[in-house]
Amino acid sequence: MLAIKCSNVRKTYPHFALQDVNLNLAEGTVMGFVGPNGAGKSTTLRVIMGLVHQDAGSVQVLGHSMPAAQRAAKWDIGFVSEDMRLYSHRTLGFHLEFLEQIFPKWDKPYAAELLRRFDLNPEQKLKGLSHGQRVKAALLTAFARKPRLLVFDEPTTGLDPVARKLVVDEMMRVMEDESRSILFSSHNTLDVEQISDSITFINQGEIVASQDKESFLDAWRRVRLVVDDTFTLPNCNSIVKTQRAGHQMVLTVSDYNEGFAAHLTQAGASVTDVERLTLEEIFIASVEASQAGQHAIQGEAA
């Protein structure tokens, strides 16, 4: 069962285009959506929400076809984007009452619990809140709808570490229920790496990788070699980056397997270390590689 299914979605703007975006979010899972600024994350999320209509391709959210059936779908989606603001001259309580009138599933005790946990005062007007409090308030309005799908566009941007932990903890609490799903974009690769079941990587309007997190992280390695003067590196597509200093060589590899080390050993190198990469390192390496016009990520949707 898929919570979100995007097939060959295209949206063209004068200076930017989403190209054949394919993205599948399985029910009961968390997907982290990463990519540089301007890569198309927000546009993709807006297409998923039905707020921007795609030029071509199909978008299914909770079994509803978007944007046509967005009303039916949005009963069960909690959406918070970085550019979303609540009414600044109104109190948080005003918003909560407003939403309570609309959503039959609105969970008042849970909203009260979140107010406490997020340390928010419902009597206070939004304009008096700090950035972090406003973000927490917006997220609260999504969480307390108890939706089957949460779509967050950079939920933790600009939050202090304590607030960030509160938000991430709340997202994981949602995941105790296996019928609920989360799609969130973030520049905080630590958060993404920690709580995502799958990772989708977008660059320049194209999905460059979309697969489960464990295989995604597993596929990348930094390989340290000691080589002699005559050593030449075998030609290999999966080598994203090569650095050499004297007799030491460091390779960044995007499609690593055991055979790779053996291959290098045969070529006359001795492999001293094979290290895993953090998501942040993978992120930077693949963006640099694609900017350098090299062959970047091999992994397609698994």
Partner: peptide, 11 residues
């Protein structure tokens, strides 16, 4: 005031 995304997040 960027309240529109909030309104459009409703059904």
């Amino acid at each position: 005031e960027q309240n529109l995304p909030f309104i459009m997040s409703l059904p």
